[in-house]
Computed example of a mutant assay.
Amino acid sequence: MNEVKESFREGGGDGDGAAPRRRTETAAAAPAPAALTAKVRTLAPSMTRSMQRVAEAVAADPAGCAALTVTGLAELTGTSEATVVRTARLLGYPGYRDLRLALAGLAAQQQSGRSPAVTADIAVDDPIAEVVAKLAHDEQQTLADTAAALDTVQLGAAVTALTAARRTDIYGIGASGLVAQDLAQKLLRIGLVAHAHHDPHLAVTGAVQLRAGDVAIAITHSGSTSDVIEPLRVAFDHGATTIAITGRPDGPVTQYADHVLTTSTARESELRPAAMSSRTSQLLVIDCLFTGVTQRTYETAAPALAASYEALVHRRVPRGLR
């Protein structure tokens, strides 16, 4: 059974000096071997350089590193034993022994051919057929990594909050704003009250109106987009249940999130920036949220979906003009 820990976070009440809200968090289980490389890609940018060396070493050669003691891996990467242990814990493992077990499992998967190598970056002169193949592979890998690393306990708690919400506000800027609009539209189609905000001023204005029983969702790959963090903070302070969908589980946005859903991305390149690859994983997470809510509210959701479909059918071009 997962260990349950309670924590206090700053920012309670409605700004009237009330005591901080008490949070109950469930510690996530150690990532499965298949999720290890995804965790490395997600967390490496926020690690210290010495921790990056450890993380990159275990992702590049899981079989070799699985055979090393903590001292041996520290020597291989030019770091310290303490750095190796800290890296293992940051990746989600209680200690180095657990990381070694995951590395052995990942090595076995790779040897069996179930964990394909990452394709090379797209080059300017790649034939279009090769571009399609590389993008398709990267999209598949991103989805697999996100699914493997997604904390289903946090996901279930987020679904519960959305199911019971009086109102849901969703914040996103740029590509994440498109994802926010998609989630809002989905929730509206099953009869729930949802608003997507891409204007930071309107987002904060709406967040001030939220209370306990409402939900606020921030979507930000970097986890540090101020225009998204600020309305989430305001919603948090006013008692709403807050959710962060982010590629940086240690980013500033998580300070104001009751539930954190981590996304993964393909490797960035000149022709494929983070905004493109992150959107794929974000869409998977919101589809999981929406499907979970629809399951919980099926008796009302199914008729609402049917009604919205019927209404949209009449907006289509008449059959004789197609």
Rank of each mutant, 00 (worst) to 15 (best):
L103W: 03
L135Y: 08
A306R: 08
G191Y: 07
L99P: 04
R322H: 02
L312T: 08
S224N: 06
A304T: 02
L183V: 11
A196L: 12
L271T: 14
A74Y: 03
A63I: 03
R211E: 09
L143H: 09
S308G: 07
I286K: 02
E56Q: 15
R272N: 06
L312S: 10
A38K: 10
Q181V: 05
G156D: 02
Q295R: 13
T280R: 01
R279P: 10
S226N: 00
P318W: 01
A120R: 15
A136W: 00
I122R: 09
P231R: 04
A203F: 10
R167S: 07
V253R: 00
S264R: 14
V4Q: 08
T220F: 09
T168S: 15
L188Q: 11
R89W: 01
A117Q: 09
G251D: 12
R9M: 12
R248A: 15
S222E: 02
E270P: 03
A274Y: 01
Y298C: 13
L210V: 13
L271Y: 10
Q154T: 15
L68V: 00
D182P: 09
T83L: 06
L178D: 00
A144K: 07
P20D: 01
G113M: 15
A302V: 05
E56V: 13
I217Y: 03
V208R: 02
V253M: 15
P318C: 00
T42R: 14
A29M: 02
L90F: 14
R248H: 05
I245S: 15
E6V: 00
P249A: 02
G72P: 15
A59F: 05
A149W: 03
A194W: 10
A74F: 05
H137T: 07
V208S: 05
A175D: 04
A55K: 03
A88E: 08
T146S: 13
A212V: 06
V228H: 04
G292L: 10
V54H: 01
T168Q: 09
L232V: 13
S46D: 10
G13C: 04
G92P: 01
D199S: 08
T263S: 14
A164H: 14
D237W: 00
